[in-house]
Design a binder for these strands. Structure first.
Length: 157
DNA sequence: GCCAACGTTGGC
DNA sequence: GCCAACGTTGGC
C-alpha cells in the first residue's frame, strides 16, 4: 500500500517536536488519544512508515513544527488500564481494549515552524482537515499533495 | 481569559 | 431517540 500521511497535534509545553528529537531512539508512544474518530485512525489506518506532520497546538503561533514517521502501527494504549493515569478508562477491558496508540519516530525539525496563518494563506491547502471550521481532531489525515506542500514550506530557507 | 465548536452523557 | 447540560479543544 502507498505511504499515507497524517497530522498529529501536541501542545509543545507538554511534548514538542524537540522533545521527540531528544527522546530515546527519537521515538515516542502517541498515547492518551480519547476520541473515537482518532482512535479508528490509530487502530485501523495508520501504518509503519507513514508520514506524520507534527503540529504544535495552543502555541504562539500554532503550526507544523516538523515531521515524524510511524514506527509501530496501532496497539492497545496501556494507559487506559492504569488507574493512576490521567487517561484511565474504567470501562476499558484488557480483552476488549477501547483505545489505541501508535509509535512515531522523529524525522525532521523544520528550520522554522510553518505557522497556522501561512497554512491558511496557502491555496493548495484550502481543503485541509486542519483548516476546517471547528475541526478539533488530534489525529487527522493529510493528502500527499498537502504533505508535499507543507514539507516544502518547512524546509525552504 | 474568552468563547465557538464539538463530543459525550444522561434524564426523560 | 431527543436534546440540554456539561466538559474539552484550541485559536485568538
Amino acid at each position: 500500500m502507498a505511504r499515507r500521511y497524517w497530522l498529529m497535534k501536541s501542545e509543545p509545553e507538554t511534548f514538542s517536536v524537540e522533545d521527540l528529537a531528544r527522546a530515546p531512539k527519537k521515538t515516542t508512544g502517541w498515547d492518551g488519544v480519547r476520541n473515537y474518530q482518532a482512535r479508528n485512525l490509530l487502530r485501523d489506518e495508520i501504518q509503519v512508515g507513514d508520514g506524520v506532520l507534527f503540529y504544535h497546538s495552543s502555541a504562539d503561533p500554532p503550526g507544523v513544527a516538523g515531521t515524524a514517521e510511524v514506527a509501530r502501527a496501532g496497539y492497545p494504549d496501556p494507559t487506559q488500564f492504569d488507574p493512576k493515569s490521567n487517561h484511565y478508562d474504567a470501562e476499558a477491558k484488557r480483552d476488549e481494549p477501547r483505545w489505541y496508540m501508535v509509535d512515531i519516530k522523529h524525522a525532521q525539525t523544520f528550520p522554522a515552524l510553518v505557522p497556522l496563518p501561512l497554512l491558511r494563506g496557502t491555496p493548495a491547502l484550502r481543503d485541509m482537515v486542519l483548516l476546517r471550521k471547528g475541526s478539533r481532531l488530534s489525529v487527522q489525515p493529510v493528502t500527499a499533495d498537502e504533505w508535499k506542500t507543507i514539507v516544502a514550506l518547512g524546509t525552504k530557507r
